[in-house]
Design a protein around this nucleic acid. Structure first.
Length: 433
RNA sequence: GCGUCGGUGGCGGAGUGGUCAAUCGCAAUUGACUGUAAAUCAAUCGCCCUUCGGGCUACGUAGGUUCGAAUCCUACCCGACGCA
């Protein structure tokens, strides 16, 4: 792996770089579509590739349960199994410690809405009776499969073994993503655990990585506490990782400070991945604070649920106002959905008919209109998910590409301001941090 | 013409004397979604008043019985089926 920094943001942590690995090149900052179960939901990988993605991220826990990492290895590894020849990253299953554990059945997620974290449960309340599918033990985490209820014990060693079987190019250490509702004492305790697991992940990785083809990233945790975040960054950087992940469940406000604290400490020459983050404003924040890689389910999940990204903010395409809106999702969007079909398409269809009528083109001339998408969603047509996912992924992947270019052109802050003003419909009074 | 069964909110369909503005599903309206338990979930869904709450009009139509009717009775209208 070679990571080259092409240009740095003046007076800040941000940078544009190139991450070269044997299977391909990743231009950073980059957005990584999520393919949890070896599939970017609703899309073929040709579609993912042609919308501009250079790398995808799959999940250890989910693939271990189904179809099983051994089977994937037999298939020739993830690349061959899922037909993606480019770089693949696997997450360690550490996020499932959170999503199937402390967050299970609760109103906490990767990002918490409560703007004042002190409003969150101040002390660790006793919810030991609350049902959860993940329970943390001394040595690892026991998971109750959400698929069939069977119990599985995942240790750092096990996670690394699974990831090597899956055969990704970049893998992650097994960590514990904590809930922001945990108190300081618990955060400290969990951080100790994550650090111990980081060492064990690294040791196991060294045993298995004989051909030295796989990169292992360590994960920094520490919740919202400055002291813990810095302590974690110091510790993780002291280990021989190839790069770093920044994990955790945040409130919006906490995220930027945490990222900054951490990246001021992490070595400049190694890549940093902000795990699970992907709304446009968060990506700007991350890039500015030195993040190189982002992955997020938001573009694809939102897409499947009818929320589409546009320069002027997100829209819910199912809403009444779009029923008869025959314009593209976004004017001048270069994605497959919003751009016009080439004439050759109509011609090739028409060639078998004697008098094929060329399609009447609407103003804007998109392949598919808002009204059509609206109809597909209301009619529960599968194509809705596909078209919406193509558009959303294109939007985010290309937003990050534009951000990258703006760094190279010394125009990052102008671009950020311009984008966010339009995106949030600001009138110029509000300040963008 | 006779007989039988049935007519409930946008639709389907519960309810068969009080706890019914009426279960539920669909449709509709809006919102949420950030290392994917997610093609998911939540809220609203007769009209009016300021929310709590209160008021009004409603279960084919018109009467009636009853303290009280979507629920019982009578007539009529409409539909399905059967017999002429």
């Amino acid at each position: 792996m070679i990571f080259t920094i092409e240009k740095k943001l003046e007076g800040g942590l941000g940078r544009a770089g190139i991450l070269k690995i044997s299977r391909g090149v990743i231009h950073t900052p980059a957005f990584i579509p999520v393919a949890t179960k070896a599939s970017v939901k609703a899309l073929t990988l040709e579609e993912v590739q042609s919308l501009g993605a250079e790398v995808v991220l799959a999940n250890t826990y989910h693939l271990y349960l189904q179809p099983g990492d051994e089977l994937v290895r037999e298939a020739g590894g993830l690349h061959q199994f899922m037909n993606w020849p480019g770089p693949i990253i696997t997450d360690s299953g550490g996020f499932q410690v959170f999503s199937l554990g402390a967050a299970y059945g609760k109103d906490v997620s990767k990002i918490t809405k409560i703007s004042d974290p002190s409003l969150l449960i101040p002390e660790r309340f006793d919810d030991s009776d609350a049902p959860r599918l993940a329970k943390i033990g001394a040595d690892g985490v026991s998971f109750k499969s959400h698929i069939d209820g069977s119990v599985h014990y995942i240790t750092p060693e096990k996670s690394i073994q699974i990831q090597h079987n899956l055969g990704a190019d970049i893998i992650f250490a097994f960590d514990e993503c904590t809930s922001p509702s945990e108190d300081l004492r618990y955060q400290e305790e969990a951080l100790e655990r994550t650090h111990a697991w980081a060492k064990r992940s690294l040791e196991e990785h060294k045993k298995l990585n004989k051909e030295n083809k796989v990169m292992l990233f360590g994960i920094v945790q520490g919740g919202r506490e400055e002291l813990l975040r810095k302590k974690s960054a110091d510790f993780i950087k002291s280990l021989d990782f190839d790069g770093f992940g920044i994990g955790g469940s945040f409130t919006k406000e906490d995220m930027s400070s945490a990222v900054k604290w951490v990246n001021e400490i992490l070595p400049e020459e190694k890549p940093r991945h902000l795990l699970g983050i992907g709304e446009p404003e968060d990506i700007f924040m991350g890039v500015e604070n030195g993040v190189d890689l982002f992955d997020c389910v938001a573009p694809t999940r939102n897409a499947r649920n009818g929320t589409l990204y546009t320069k002027e903010g997100k829209i819910n395409i199912k809403n009444t106002e779009f029923r008869e809106d025959f314009s593209p999702i976004e004017k001048n969007c270069g994605c497959y959905v919003c751009s016009p079909s080439p004439d050759t398409f109509a011609q090739s269809l028409g060639s078998s008919l004697r008098s094929a009528t060329p399609l009447q083109k609407h103003a804007g001339s998109a392949r598919y209109t808002r009204a059509y998408l609206c109809h597909l969603f209301r009619g529960r047509e599968m194509l809705a998910a596909t078209l919406a996912s193509i558009h959303n992924l294109y939007f985010i992947v290309n937003l990050v590409k534009k951000i990258r270019q703006s760094i190279l052109d010394d125009k990052f802050f102008d671009f950020k301001k311009e984008f966010l003003y339009t995106y949030f419909h600001l009138d110029g009074q509000e300040k963008i941090k």
